[in-house]
Design a protein around this nucleic acid. Sequence first.
DNA 1: CTGAAAGCGCTTACAG
DNA 2: CTGAAAGCGCTTACAG
Lengths: 353, 353
Amino acid sequence: MSPTNPAANRPARTNGKVTVIEVAAEAGVSVSAVSRAFNPNGSCSDKMRKKVFKAAEKIGYKPNRLARGLKSRSSLIGILVTDFDNPAYLAILSDFTSAIQKRNCHSLLINASQQLNIAEAVELVMQYQVDGLIVTSTTLPQRLVEACQKQNTPVVIFGRRSRENLATVVCCDNVINGRMAADLLLDAGYHYPAFVGGPIGVSTTTDRQRGFINRLIQRGCDHWTVCEGGRHSYDAGFEATCKLFRARDRPDAIFYADDIMACGGMDAIRYELGLRVPEDVGIIGVDDIRLASSRAYNLTTIRQPFSDMVNTTVDALFEHIHNKDLPPKHITMPCTLIVRSSTRAPGIGAAQN
Amino acid sequence: MSPTNPAANRPARTNGKVTVIEVAAEAGVSVSAVSRAFNPNGSCSDKMRKKVFKAAEKIGYKPNRLARGLKSRSSLIGILVTDFDNPAYLAILSDFTSAIQKRNCHSLLINASQQLNIAEAVELVMQYQVDGLIVTSTTLPQRLVEACQKQNTPVVIFGRRSRENLATVVCCDNVINGRMAADLLLDAGYHYPAFVGGPIGVSTTTDRQRGFINRLIQRGCDHWTVCEGGRHSYDAGFEATCKLFRARDRPDAIFYADDIMACGGMDAIRYELGLRVPEDVGIIGVDDIRLASSRAYNLTTIRQPFSDMVNTTVDALFEHIHNKDLPPKHITMPCTLIVRSSTRAPGIGAAQN
DNA sequence: CTGAAAGCGCTTACAG
DNA sequence: CTGAAAGCGCTTACAG
C-alpha cells in the first residue's frame, strides 16, 4: 500500500488491467525498460528483453495501441473509399489491408460515398492521428493535401492522377489505355466506335476518353460518339448502351470506362438489342476484373495491375512516413491488353473490310 | 512565460498543435469546460458551449480521438473479414462503414483471410481498444468471444450461426433456405438435384445442405448428389460443376451455396458442357448479389437481406456497447425466394412430368 | 454549471 | 544499456 510503489495500488484502481507498470513490477525492471523491450528499435539488451517478455507473457500483457499512439505513431493508416460500385474494389481492399497489416499497421476504412464529403472524411481520419492516408477512386483537392501535409501526414492517391501534382500518385496512363482501345477496335475492322464514360469529371474517364478519341481522329476515323454512364456500375453500362443505340448513328464498337460497365453494356447488346458480340458490336473494357474472364462475358479488356499498384502505393506511403522530406512523385504502372472474344480478331476483322 | 500559464509555453513545446489547453486559453475557461463542451452529455451551459466552440473554431482545434480513447471510448469498431471472394461483401462493407459512421464511430478493417489467423486478428483489434467487434463471414471460437467479453468488448457475429450460442448473432435460417431450394427444384420437375457447397465446415454451407437434402428425402427424392466447392468463388463453382458432370449420375438441377458459385456453375453448364439452363439443368443460388439479376445470368436465388442484416447487426452492437449487461441474442432474418430464369417455372415444370 | 487535479497507458529525452 | 520523470491530449471524479 505504500504510495511509492504504483504497482501495489494498481489492481484496486485499474480493474485488473495489465499495463507496463505491472509488467515492470513482475520483471523487476523499470517501466522505461518495458517500453523499450516492446519497441523494435529501443536500445535494450537481449537479456532484458527476454526478462520483460517472459513477465509480460506470464501476466498476459497486451500493449494499448491508443496510448502508444499518443506520443508515438498510431500505426493506423486511413483508407478513403468513395466508390463501392466497382467490384474491383473488393480485391483492392483485400490487398490494401493485407499489405498494411504486413507492416504491423492497421486500416481505418472511411466510406466517403454518401453522407460524408471528402473534406469531412479527411478531417475525421486526421482526428485518429493516422500515420498516412491512402485515397482511392477519387482525387484530393489541393487544400486537403496541404492540410494533411501540415499535420505531417503523408498522402498517396491510388488510381487517379492529380492535376495539381503535389501528392504522390500511383496510377496508370489512361491516355495510353484509350489509345490502345482505339487501335484495337480499328485494327479489328470496326468503323463506328463509341466511348461510354464513368463518373463525370474523374481523371480516369477523362483520360481514357481523350486518348481514345484523339487516336480515332488521328487514324482518320471521324464517326465516333460518346455517352456518359455517370457511375461505375452494371446498370450504368446497360443504360448508356441502350441510349447509344436509340440514336441515329449506331456504333459498331464500344469502349467502356471499366469492365463492370462493359458487362452491363454487353448484356444490353445481346439481350436487349438482340445483336451479336463481337460480330455486330465489339466491346472492350478496362480493369480485368474477375468477371471479365468469365465464360459468359469473356471480355476483351485493358488490365490494370491492381495488385502491383496496391503494393507500390503502400510502399510509397511508408517511404513518406519514414522520410517526411521525400518529395511527392508520380508513379505510372503499365497496363496490358487482354484480347478475349468480345472483339473480332484484329487480322480477321481487318481482312473482312 | 510564467510557468503557471501552460498555454503560454505551448507553441514552443508542441510544434503548433492546437489542443484543449489552447482552446481553454482562447475562450478564457478551464480545460475541463472545453472537454465537456465537446462531449454531447457533458454538463455544460449553452453559453459556455458557444464560447468554447467559437474559440475552437477560431484557432482551428480538432479533437484527438486517440487521446480521448485513452480514458473514454475509442469510437473504433473492429470489422473482421475472412472472405474477400464473395462479391456480396463489397456492398456489405460499404453498408457497415456507413452505418458505423452515422454513429460517429469508425471502422478498423481487419483482413483475416491470409497471414493472420482469427485469434491474432482479434488480439490486434483489442489492442486498439475497439468499442465493439463485428465478425463477418466466419464465426468466433468460444474462447475468443470470452476474451472479448473479459475486456468488456461486445461482439456480434454477422451471417453465421454460432453453435456455442454465447455471442449475439445476426443471420438467416439457412436450413429453411435449403428447404426452399429443394421445394422449388422438385416443384419445377427436376429429379436429380445436387448441392455444391462453399468452404468446408462453415455453418451457412452446412445448414443449407442439411435443409436441402433433408427436404429432398422427405419428399421422396433419393437421387441427390453433393459436391464441395471449397470457396465462395466463381472458379470454385465452375470446377465443382464440371466434377459433378464427370460422375456417372449427372444432376439435372443444382443448388449452390451462393450466387457467385452459381454463376461459375452456370457458365460451366452452358459453355463447358454445352447444356441449356434451365431446360437441361436448373440452377439456384443464395444471396441475390448484383450479378444475379444481370441479363447474362438472370439467376433464381434466395435473397439474403444484407442491407437490413447490416443495420440490425450495428444496432445490436451499439445496444451492447451502451448496455454491457444485455444478454447475447440470436436474430434471424427472413430470406426471399427470387425466381428468375435459371429454373423452370414451377407450374410448367411440374406439368411436364 | 464550472474549475483544479489526477489519471488513462504508453514513450522519450535526459542522466547515469 | 537502464531508470526516474515529464509528457502525449484528453476525461472524469471531486469540490464548490
